[in-house]
């Protein structure tokens, strides 16, 4: 490329970005001297960087870390059971509240009552939050989402299965599953439908719950919720797990008798 036009492009790039010549040349080379592409890439990256790094001031970050330290287990680098209970209480929520699962999902907790330092600090920091008050606002926001955002609910629901498993477990005991189904889904899909399902599991189902069954139940409930004659028109030949077939058969037998 002719030196003159190179210089022109570099100048134009510098006008927008306020960079030095060498840096501007590097960006432009990377994007094959396409000014628009290079500018856009530069802006995208720099805005991301500033979000990640500059969400909290040093001071705020310090208070976030001392907040973590307040709850963390002695001699460990995570918040344990006792700390968790205290933390939830300070957020002014019940430990049994389903929103705790949303919080656990948010903080990437791997196990009941455990919040690791890195996950705790990073995730709050990314959200630009450092005080217990702000955290409560965020959790309140989760609570609203659980009630009216099906995608959000599904994310928390799918997370819950893995969250509830012990280390080498692959399936969930049906009693545990029933407990959490009621906790998470009753409100959204309706008391009646969930209790029919849970009663079926209690009375008729003899196996532990697999991940596939857990995940497919959400879709099943969602369709049941949306279609009036879902049970009547349910097709056993469709791709539902056979557990759903058994449930529908059970429901139909119940209604016909």
């Amino acid at each position: 490329m002719a030196p003159r036009s190179v210089q022109k492009l570099v100048e134009s790039f510098k006008e927008v970005t306020d960079l030095r010549d060498s840096e501007a040349t590097a960006w432009l080379t990377k994007y094959k001297w396409n000014l628009e592409d290079a500018v856009e890439a530069y802006l995208t990256q720099t805005s991301m960087n500033s979000q990640g790094q500059n969400f909290l001031t040093q001071e705020q970050k310090g208070s976030l870390i001392s907040l973590f330290n307040k709850y963390k287990q002695d001699g460990e680098d995570y918040i344990g059971i006792d700390g968790t209970i205290q933390y939830i209480e300070d957020l002014e929520f019940e430990v049994e509240d389903p929103v705790v699962l949303a919080l656990a999902e948010f903080l990437e907790s791997t196990q009941m009552g455990v919040f690791e330092r890195a996950k705790f600090v990073n995730n709050w920091e990314k959200a630009g939050i450092s005080s217990i008050h702000e955290m409560r606002q965020k959790v309140l926001e989760f609570q609203r989402s659980l009630e009216n955002d099906e995608q959000f609910l599904k994310k928390v629901y799918d997370f819950t299965f893995k969250f509830l498993l012990d280390n080498n477990q692959r399936t969930l005991l049906k009693d545990t599953a029933v407990e959490y189904w009621k906790l998470l889904l009753s409100h959204y899909f309706g008391e009646e439908k969930m209790s029919q399902w849970c009663q079926f599991i209690n009375d008729e189902w003899q196996f532990a719950i697999t991940k596939d069954q857990w995940q497919m139940l959400f879709l099943f409930m969602s369709e049941w919720n949306q279609k009036d004659n879902f049970i009547e028109s349910y097709d056993e030949n469709a791709a539902w797990p056979s557990m759903m077939d058994t449930f529908v058969e059970y429901l139909r037998a119940k209604t016909s008798s």
Binding site: T171, T210, K211, D212, Q213, E236, P241, S242
Partner: peptide, 14 residues
């Protein structure tokens, strides 16, 4: 039966 096949599929997913 489709049910038998579906059970086998469930198992293979598992």
């Amino acid at each position: 039966s489709v049910g038998d096949i579906k059970k086998a599929i469930d198992l293979l997913i598992e």
